[in-house]
Simulated assay, not measured.
Amino acid sequence: MARFIRDILATLSYEPAKAPADREELSRLDQRLAHFADKGAGTGGTISIQPDECSVWDGNPRDQPGLTADSCRSLIESIASEGGNRIPVLVRLNPPGSDRPYQLLVGSRRRFAVGWLNHNGRPDLRLTALVVDLSDEEAFRLADIENRERADISELDRARSYQHAVDRFYGGVQSRMAEALNLSNSQLSRLIALAQLPQEVIDAFATRDELRVRYSELLTPLLRQAGQRGRMIAEAQLIGEQQQALARQGDRLIPPATVLARLREAAMPPSQEEARDIAIMAGGARIGRAKPSRGGGLTVDLSIAEDADLDELLARLRETIVAVRATPLL
């Protein structure tokens, strides 16, 4: 078994599968696992366990709460029709004293699907598994091979797992990790840069699935300048609040291209007139801006959430108007 798994690590390609996300075609790793299970049928090559008998290893980048019956529908139907998962999951023994005997390394979707079926009319189904003896670093590489072949793992989830793994498994040396994963140093650097985006910028996008490495390549250089960074984070906070308000109202959310354009625009140095704008704050968040006009009037832009405290908002607005009136024109 150990030789079989290490042969997979040594020979499998890291190029992601080209099949559409909605098709359950076998990936290269799946093909190898299915072939091994078929070849070893009846010889003790695989075991049958209950899904709850294994905990999920924390080194796998897949977002476990993100697995739902809808996202796994075709897999659930396939396993139900075949009477089990033909492609085995990979588990290893948990340390003595653990509350579950096994630790799941590869096969989160299959585990979820069998567990869902157990609770929805098919309590007889068991999870077919291969027990392997792998180090954490080997387990990470194997999970990475499988996850690169899946379209339902976000680039952000993968980037965050890489950021965590470079310290956990490779002593903080990116070049060592890049070599082990068959990536170029630049590819790995771009992925880790995505994971290092400020949380305010991440929250500005409607979903984290919308974040792409190419966005990070555009935003990261701008975020390195202190002045630009402050303006971009302020704009990101405003966009995030607007996204939340739109979601509560059931309206269409701000698309990623618009979010990206607004963040890049915020990085541009303000004009002399824009520099005199005063932010309007309420509840610790920016809700708009005010600026004096040369005609003696006042321009106010507001973005008011549905559940905003109107008394506090009006009080902050009054304070801002007084401050703007006291600002001398240039």
Rank of each mutant, 00 (worst) to 15 (best):
R3I: 11
F4S: 12
I5V: 07
I5F: 10
A10K: 10
T11E: 06
E15S: 05
E15W: 04
P16Y: 06
P16A: 04
K18Q: 14
P20E: 06
L26S: 03
D30P: 01
D30Q: 15
A37L: 01
D38F: 05
V56N: 12
P61G: 14
P61H: 12
D63Y: 09
G66T: 08
T68S: 13
T68V: 00
S71P: 02
R73N: 10
E77I: 06
I79S: 01
E82F: 09
N85K: 06
N85Q: 09
N85G: 10
I87N: 15
I87K: 14
P88Y: 03
P88C: 01
V89H: 02
V89I: 11
V91Q: 02
V91A: 05
P96D: 12
R100K: 14
R100A: 15
Q103I: 12
R109T: 08
F112E: 12
F112I: 08
N118Q: 15
D124V: 00
L125C: 10
L127V: 13
T128Y: 10
V132Q: 04
E138Q: 03
A139T: 05
D144W: 11
D144N: 08
R148E: 09
E149F: 09
E155S: 07
R160V: 00
S161E: 14
Q163G: 01
D167C: 07
D167T: 07
Y170V: 00
G171Y: 07
Q174F: 00
L181W: 01
Q187F: 00
Q187L: 03
L188A: 07
L188V: 05
L191M: 10
I192N: 01
A193K: 08
L194K: 13
A195V: 11
A195T: 13
Q199R: 13
F205H: 09
A206G: 04
R208H: 06
L211K: 00
R214K: 06
Y215Q: 06
E217Q: 09
L219F: 00
T220V: 03
P221G: 13
L223G: 03
G227A: 01
Q228Y: 13
M232N: 14
M232S: 14
Q237M: 07
Q237L: 04
E241G: 10
E241R: 10
E241Y: 11
Q243S: 12
A245F: 05
L253H: 15
I254M: 15
A257S: 14
V259E: 11
V259Q: 13
L260C: 01
A261K: 14
R262P: 07
L263C: 03
R264S: 12
R264I: 12
A266F: 09
E273K: 05
D277W: 06
I280L: 15
A285D: 12
P292R: 15
R294H: 13
T299K: 11
V300L: 04
S303M: 07
A305P: 02
A308I: 01
L314I: 08
A315S: 09
R316E: 06
L317E: 00
R318D: 10
E319F: 08
I321T: 07
A323G: 02
A326K: 15
A326I: 04
T327S: 14
P328V: 15
L330W: 13
